[in-house]
Design a protein around this nucleic acid. Structure first.
Lengths: 339, 339
DNA sequence: CTGTTAGCGCCTTCAT
DNA sequence: ATGAAGGCGCTAACAG
């Protein structure tokens, strides 16, 4: 079962290696019909398969890209990576998927391993603190695309949701449904989507003439959020609505409500960023801000492969690509029997 | 920014390539202290990074494995792949993730591309109809592990949920809760988990003395299931419980119930295979049979890397590894106000 | 202890 | 229209 090589094919077809190579690379132009046939047949009978490693070494191209994601367990990441994979497959590229777990050390390690593997480019969900690494990628002219998070002051194409805009729609919708006091829950404000959403929340509240109540806002580790929830969901505080900044932060909320009220109270609106699976089957169904994950993944892959095929970063007028969120209005945010 | 190579380092340190290579590969044993130092420094100042492609060509090993999954959008697949990735990363292996979409043509294509890329082994969610391909992998002594689905008569390590056992627990539980007539919904019985669950359903019903009602069973395309649901949820038929064979088949059920009854009727039990996210927050929370996805992924990776490190398939007494499901009993299957 | 040499499998001028 | 030769970057005997 030893591997059959170009040489074997050449021998079998009684031609030279280079001729077979020509054939493989479609340089038929001046090739004799019978030679072509003989090679074809030899390849078939020997079950020859080119060795992509050897080819890569010579051509300095692996047709493989590296994707370093925050956490593949998040639904958005999954969808994005699926879209990336689909697009790349269509273009003849392979994808090596890595999980950085929001650990910049791990991220760095991955980038290095992938460089060693000579990937042709990177799609990265950047962690907060690895700027030097990114900069060096840029210096070495590695094609890179950032997803979901912005890293300021680097000319690297970046795709994110237009968080402030989406937040504004969310607030407007909540206001239109008669919600005045709105609680906000988020994980610590470490990465750009979180800060943008939070900032957007504050400014949009102001813009809509709603008063911001500091004691209705939580931006810390979710595992410690119970006392916050207990506080705001006690008589005297009870907000009209609670806005969750992503699908993870929705969990403690639902959990608390379920345990305490055996369901969602009639007079509380819920709205969360990120589409949650089965959102429509909840009682009440949950209003969400959905990211166009497929679009974003596809676009990221497209931008990257463009860069690769054009041999390096081409100048863009704008390195930022904002994507529109979609407000999926469901029961949880509508005026129900509340009035 | 041209790549710096072993040669460059050797020149800079005034030694030969091989000495540097020795150094890199930890063959210090007989190396002079100063030489070592010089090399170290040269590597640092030149920012040398070994080219894994070149190394692979020489060593015929890529420390990369290929994973071909049915569909990365499924939660179980995601978790499994995450576990695989974690394990491999710890062992210094890389993972190329591919989506076959249950399309055996695509699967074949992927296997071929990955072979060309000289991956060291495969983890595959086998589609129904690619036996020749698997057989040839085996012939070529490629390390392979199958996940989730059985392919009969091939000596390939296979990991799946013990479907019949889990089904039996589910039925027993439903019976204990006073359910007599149980409806069953599944996608077409094309792959082993589906057939095993279905067969398990039938035999377990019998074993528990419950009568199987053919008109309460659906095993066809989910998109056409509405009329079935309409039929069984009409007066005269209404089953005590409905059992969904996976997370996908739960969707039309919830959808129908939501639209028709604005929720889950008090007198209907629901139980589904596959853990669904937020299952506990449903009203009522949903009873599920959970697969130990992380365990399975980890074990799959472990078995594969074992094979790789031991240079080929080692003989196993049993190529089948069954995993125990976990019945997450929640409100949807408990006797509630029904009696 | 370190350098020389010979490939790994393929691609690519350059001759013929 | 085809072949010969050199090299991609690294490793692995085998000398010295």
């Amino acid at each position: 079962m030893k591997k059959v090589t170009l040489q074997d094919v050449a021998d079998h077809a009684a031609v030279s290696k280079s001729t077979v190579s020509q054939y493989l690379n479609g340089r038929y132009t001046y090739m004799g019909e019978q030679t072509k046939r003989r090679i074809e047949e030899s390849i078939r009978t020997l079950q020859y398969q080119p060795n992509a490693i050897a080819r890569s070494l010579k051509q300095k191209k692996t047709t493989t890209i590296g994707v370093i994601m925050a956490n593949i367990l998040h639904r958005v990441s999954t969808q994005t990576s699926r879209a990336i994979e689909d697009f790349c497959h269509a273009k003849g590229y392979h994808v090596i998927l890595c999980n950085a777990d929001d650990d910049s050390e791990k991220e760095k390690q991955y980038i290095e391993m992938l460089k060693a593997k000579q990937v042709d480019g990177f799609i990265i969900y950047p962690t907060a603190s690895n700027e030097e690494m990114y900069k060096s990628l840029l210096d070495e002219k590695y094609p890179v695309v950032f997803l979901d998070r912005k890293v300021k002051a680097l000319s690297i194409p970046t795709l994110t949701l237009r968080n402030e805009e989406a937040m504004d729609w969310a607030i407007e919708h909540l206001k239109n449904q008669g919600n005045e006091s709105i609680a906000y829950i988020s994980s610590p404000l470490t990465i750009s989507p979180r800060t943008e959403r939070y900032d957007g929340f504050l400014s949009s509240m102001k813009r809509h003439g709603l008063t911001i109540q500091q004691d209705l806002i939580y931006t810390d580790k979710l595992s410690d959020s119970t006392s916050f929830l207990k506080k705001i969901f006690s008589p005297g505080h009870f907000p009209d609505a609670i806005l969750s900044s992503n699908d993870r932060s929705l969990v403690p909320v639902l959990d608390y409500l379920k345990k305490t009220f055996k369901g969602v109270p009639e007079h509380l609106s819920i709205l969360t960023f990120d589409e949650v699976e089965y959102a429509e089957f909840f009682q009440p169904s949950i209003t969400t801000v959905e990211q166009p994950a497929f679009e974003m993944g596809t676009k990221a892959a497209e931008l990257l492969i463009d860069q690769i095929d054009h041999d390096g970063l081409q100048h863009l007028d704008d390195y930022y690509f904002g994507f529109q969120g979609k407000l999926n209005i469901r029961e949880s945010s509508l005026k129900r029997g509340r009035d």
